[in-house]
Design a protein around this nucleic acid. Structure first.
Length: 631
DNA sequence: ACTTTCTCGT
């Protein structure tokens, strides 16, 4: 069960040890590596043998070309051996083809060694090697090769830029990316769509949406990929509405969407929980028959799952002509986020039974299913199985699931030990999971440790301070509450504004906390009033703990009643026939008090209410919630 | 003689 124990992984281990002593390399030290390699190989470099025997060389050229197109590295190696024998391996034409082959097949060690021995390296040759590192990593080497190439006096072209920018994008290397952008402008490739798309993507991965847009706006002759890149930028950076708006612009300008366009826009609709929009795109792709590989359907599985329609998601999943690993992943993650752990795990077993090889994302789904289902033993089992049977080293997301799982069950020390034993640096998600568990189990000491780490990792996030302050409040440590609040204001931090939205009659209605802007505001508040009375009769007692709530102004305690999710629910109740299920999405976590209130409401009005918050889904039905009050 | 950009799952 260790399929990747071959030369590829051995190369990576070696290369990381020798080439990259630390995970994030500076340009200078990488250059040192490159020059060392150069001098070493130059000494033993064989002089190139020209194209003496024409026919032979042409035949080898076409043979190698077909190896490249078939990604057939082993036959290529045989040809390489033969060429070494007849002295033509370092011939610029054949050598370049060999480097291309090794680069394409992720044999970067071989590619690099040969590259170093080819005299008069052309821009083309550099491009091929840079592409290899940009695609397969270590991407730092691709960037350092680019600078090395400049030093050799070569001019990067319209192929070099997309490759090296791809490397920057993967590394989120903004500084290098901006510098290379300047080179692009200076060398006049600014309006090339390939270079432009690569720049847009690089800025997107670095979170610079405005820079992406500037690149997009400067290119007047756009192609569909350029549109797709810009739509994806919005979608990936938390601007799903802009993504959909741009998609509509693109249509009105007469550009034909591609499969990639639809996948991106559906993902944006999924993140908005905008089912009407998603349905429209579903119909669109169906009419245009734009889904040859079922990728759009897989995106739709995710959409329907995120919009709370698990049954519809499952139907689409079952109707896929060809299931791929991503399809299984989407469905498993769908069950997981709704807390249907048993279905998620059953699907995982089915997936294995059908002969699919789970990847690290599959395990994120499986472990989060265990986490939301409180299945500690299962969680550990899969966590270990992942590495043992599938050679997948745990990533931060897997650790986050485990910390969440252990933490929720009150095993806070075990969770903390897991974090301190990690061989990769824990990120804010991992510490955030611990902090959240500390709140559930009122553990002040560990919460303080977690916050210390979080302040370093995400200094601008007010949510962490709020959480710690609430933990202090739970234990009556009012002096500390005051201290945290002071530190927050000292750093100029404000809680992000809470906001919820709900779909009614194919339209999405959004509400801020205490919102009065909705046209039916009066009716909504009247319904809130009516519900308030019924809640009281049913025995609901508002939680008046003096803690921060999801409001920006923490003095407005009375606003608990007008929390955004309650406004959305009240609007849903007066706008839909009795018995209709309500689906609400919120940008933050549901607060404790609202969670209690919504449980009551679901029973009083006899409706199922689905609330999606940042972390998971809550299905409220008949006075109970699917999360079992742990979230 | 030969190489490019965008996409679903945390």
């Amino acid at each position: 069960m260790l399929p990747s124990a071959g030369s590829v992984s051995r190369f990576l281990v070696v290369s990381v040890k020798i080439v990259l002593p630390s995970p994030l390399q500076t340009k200078r030290s990488l250059n040192v590596y490159c020059s060392v390699r150069h001098s070493h190989f130059n000494n033993s470099c064989t002089k190139s043998v020209g194209c003496g025997e024409d026919n032979t060389d042409i035949n080898y050229a076409s043979l190698l070309q077909s190896c490249i197109s078939k990604r057939a590295v082993d036959p290529g190696k045989q040809i390489h051996a033969r060429l070494l024998h007849i002295g033509s391996a370092f011939n610029p034409v054949l050598g370049t083809k060999l480097v291309n082959l090794y680069s394409t097949c992720n044999c970067l060690c071989d590619a690099h060694k040969l590259f170093d021995k080819i005299p008069n390296q052309s821009v083309f040759l550099w491009n091929v090697l840079i592409r290899g590192y940009a695609w397969n990593g270590p991407q730092e080497v691709a960037v350092s090769l680019y600078y090395e190439m400049l030093k050799c006096g070569l001019k990067p072209d319209n192929f070099t830029f997309p490759f090296v920018l791809k490397a920057c994008s993967t590394l989120s290397a903004l500084q290098e990316g901006r510098e290379i952008h300047e080179h692009v402008v200076r060398s006049g490739w600014e309006s090339d769509v390939f270079v432009g798309a690569a720049l847009i993507d690089m800025y997107a991965k670095c979170g610079c949406v405005n820079s992406s847009r500037e690149v997009f706006d400067k290119i007047t002759e756009r192609d569909v990929v350029l549109w797709n890149s810009m739509i994806a930028t919005y979608s990936q950076n938390g601007h799903p509405s802009e993504a959909i708006a741009l998609f509509l612009d693109m249509n009105s300008l007469g550009f034909q969407p591609t499969e990639a366009t639809l996948v991106t826009v559906i993902s944006a609709a999924a993140n908005l929980t905008n089912l009407p929009q998603g349905r429209e795109i579903h119909g669109f792709s169906w009419r245009r028959k734009l889904d040859p590989f079922g990728k759009v359907k897989t995106a739709l599985v995710d959409l329907y799952a995120k919009c709370g329609s698990l049954a519809a998601a499952r139907r689409l999943f079952e109707n896929l002509d060809e299931k791929r690993v991503v399809s299984w992943n989407a469905m498993i993650a769908g069950y997981a986020m709704h807390g249907h752990a048993a279905e998620a795990l059953a699907l995982f077993e089915e997936m294995k039974w059908d002969g699919f090889l789970p990847d690290h994302i599959t395990f994120v789904g499986v472990l989060s299913a265990c986490s939301h289902g409180g299945l500690i033993d299962k969680g550990w089992e899969y966590f270990k199985l992942m590495t043992r049977d599938y050679s997948i080293e745990p990533k931060v997301q897997h650790y986050t699931c485990m910390v969440d799982l252990l933490g929720h069950s009150g095993k806070l020390d075990e969770a903390y030990n897991l974090i301190t034993g990690m061989c990769i640096p824990p990120d804010s998600g991992v510490w955030g999971a611990l902090l959240n568990s500390c709140k559930l189990h009122k553990n002040v000491e560990l919460a303080e440790i977690a916050l210390q780490r979080l302040i370093v990792l995400e200094p601008d996030d007010a949510g962490n301070y709020v959480l710690l302050s609430n933990i202090y409040a739970q234990s009556g440590k009012w002096d500390k509450v005051a201290k945290v609040r002071k530190e927050m204001t000292g750093r100029g931090l404000k809680k992000s504004i809470a906001c919820s939205w709900i779909e009614v009659k194919n339209k999405v209605h959004g509400f801020l906390v205490g919102d009065l802007s909705h046209p039916q505001s009066n009716d909504i508040y009247a319904e809130m009033e009516r519900l308030g009375g019924l809640l009281k009769e049913a025995g609901y007692v508002p939680n008046t703990e003096p803690v921060f709530h999801d409001v920006e102004d923490d003095e407005k305690m009375n606003m608990v009643n007008s929390h955004s999710e309650r406004l959305a629910i009240a609007f849903g109740l007066i706008s839909t026939p009795p018995g209709t299920r309500l689906a609400v999405t919120k940008n933050l976590r549901v607060c404790d008090d609202c969670h209690v209130a919504i449980k009551f409401i679901s029973k009083i009005v006899g409706r199922e209410i689905v609330v999606r918050d940042v972390n998971r889904y809550h299905h409220f039905r008949n006075g109970e919630c699917s999360c079992g009050d742990y979230w």
